Structures are given as structure tokens and as C-alpha cells.
Computed example of a mutant assay.
Amino acid sequence: MSRTAGGRRACRARTFVTAGAAVAGLLVAAGCSSGGDGPGEAAGGVPVVEKGKLTTCTHLPYPPFQFEQGGKVVGFDVALIDLVAKNLKVEQKILDTPFENFKTGAFLNSGECDLAAAGMTITDERKKNVDFSVPYFDATQALLATKKSGVRTLADVKAKNAKLGAQAETTGESYATSQGFDPVAFESSDAVLNGLRTGQVDAVVIDYPVVQGWLKDKANADAFALGENIETGEQYGFSVKKGNTKLLAAIDKAIKDAKADGTYNKLYKQWIGPLPQGQS
């Protein structure tokens, strides 16, 4: 998903401990300092911005990849980075930050975070500012519409002169624009779905895994219909500051090991749903 939040919200960072961390509970931090004991090294000489922590920047909520549940941040991305943290013998700490910083690498360059994990599409533009891990998720977009609209495809949107929505500065928005639409832009995936629910738009282009989770709710499934899947060739990656080769290697190793030993598939089924056809 190529997300960014519209409008700069400088210095907003909420701090969380993940469900996989040894310390339970929810921490909320004001300002822009990560605090703690200052920089340190994790196992294998991997530098970290806070001793004993692997600090992850994300932008909440974005289920099923990262979202709050029971006072902790959980999800597919969170679980994968917990594997990295375990290998490095540290604890993952999550900062909720404006998504625009992931595009520029701002929080990585400032030493606020070690990595960004936010269902982020790997693009050539972003590679200019950050280094990406190996891809960890093949993503597609989907069209979701109200049942009463009768919209099931983008052609229907055009034919019925329906109002289309998407998350601001995402690949979904870019795709819709490339097809000649001028979608209503929303700041977050939650805002996109709320816009659909409240009738601000008739249909939305949004990441398919988000739709999968949303339609598990019977009320949503009764009122909204999944339309066409849109293959955009997207792959998600975790990002680090350019040149941070040791951390990048640790992330890549955790992803590859998880795929090799079955952990990846287990987490996929837990957080996202059935494995894609042909994958076991």
C-alpha cells in the first residue's frame, strides 16, 4: 500500500510496547524524543537508537498489519518485526508517527526509529530515501462498494458517475488517478472505510487485505460488496536508514527464516487469512 497521511503533523509520536514484548502495557510518549538510555548495540553489533529496544515507526491503524488491540499494538507486520527483535535479543518498541515520514525517511534519518513497518509498498521513488528489506508481502488493491450502488468494477464507477474514494498518496489513489478518476482522498484506511460507510463515497480502492478483515464483520458484509481485484504488482517491504546494512541483513534473515520454517505461513493465517492459491 503506498500510504501517506495528508498534512504534516510535526512531532507527533505515540509510543507502544508490542504484544510480543516482554514488558506488558501501553506507553504514551509526548514530543519527539524516543527517550530511554540512548543509542546502543543489539546482538551481532546491530546499532539501535535506544539500548535494549528495536524502535519501529508505523502509522496506526492499518489492520491487519498493525493496529491496537487490548492496549497493545498487534498485527502481521508487528509479529514479523518481533522475530527480528528476538534474534537481536532486544524488545520491539513502536512509535505511531505521520506516514509522510516513511516516504522521506525522516524519522530514520533523525534517529527517532530504527526501521519503518507500515504495510509500505517498495517503489523506486522511496528507494532514493531509504533502503528496503526483501519483499515480505505481495499486495493487490480491491474495489469495495456499497451494495445499493451496484458498483462492482471501475467501469461501473464511471458508468454510474459514482463517487470514488482512496487513501491519500497511496498506490490505490495513484492507480485510480491513472485510470482517469479524481478520487476523494482520505488520510487513513479507517477514514476511507468510514467515508464509504457514511455515504461520503460510493466505492473505494483500497488494499485487499484491509477489505478481507473489514468484511469479516457481518454488518459490513451485509451492506458492502467486494468488487474487482486490481493487480498492481505491489510488494511490501520494511525500510531502514540508507546504509544501515547490519539491521537490513537482520530483517532479511528473519523474513527468510520465517518463510523457510513455516512461521511466516502461520502468522499469515493468523493475521490475514487463508494463504493465496498455490501457496502452502
Rank of each mutant, 00 (worst) to 15 (best):
I81M: 12
E91G: 04
E91H: 09
L95I: 05
K89W: 05
L108C: 06
E91P: 01
D96L: 00
A79W: 09
K86Q: 14
V84M: 04
Q92F: 08
K93T: 10
D82R: 06
A106S: 12
A79N: 06
F107H: 14
F102E: 13
K103R: 15
E91D: 14
K93D: 08
G71S: 01
K86T: 13
L108M: 10
K89I: 03
V74W: 01
E100M: 12
E100K: 13
E100L: 12
K72N: 08
D82L: 04
D77G: 04
N109F: 09
L95F: 14
G71L: 00
K89N: 13
A106V: 09
N87K: 14
A106G: 09
E100W: 13
K89Y: 06
L83Y: 07
G105F: 04
Q92K: 12
D96H: 10
V90P: 01
K72G: 00
D82M: 03
G75F: 04
G105C: 06
E91C: 04
N87C: 05
L95G: 07
E100G: 12
D96K: 09
K93Y: 10
V84L: 04
L80Q: 08
L80T: 07
K103T: 14
E91I: 02
I94R: 08
N101V: 11
L80F: 07
G70K: 05
P98S: 10
V74E: 01
V74K: 06
V90E: 02
K72C: 00
K72Y: 02
D96V: 07
I94V: 15
V74F: 00
K86S: 13
L80E: 03
G75E: 04
A106W: 10
G71K: 07
L88K: 02
Q92S: 12
F99R: 15
G71M: 02
G105K: 08
G75K: 02
F107S: 14
I81V: 14
G70H: 07
V90S: 09
L95M: 12
V84I: 03
L80D: 03
I94Q: 10
N109K: 15
T104W: 03
V84D: 05
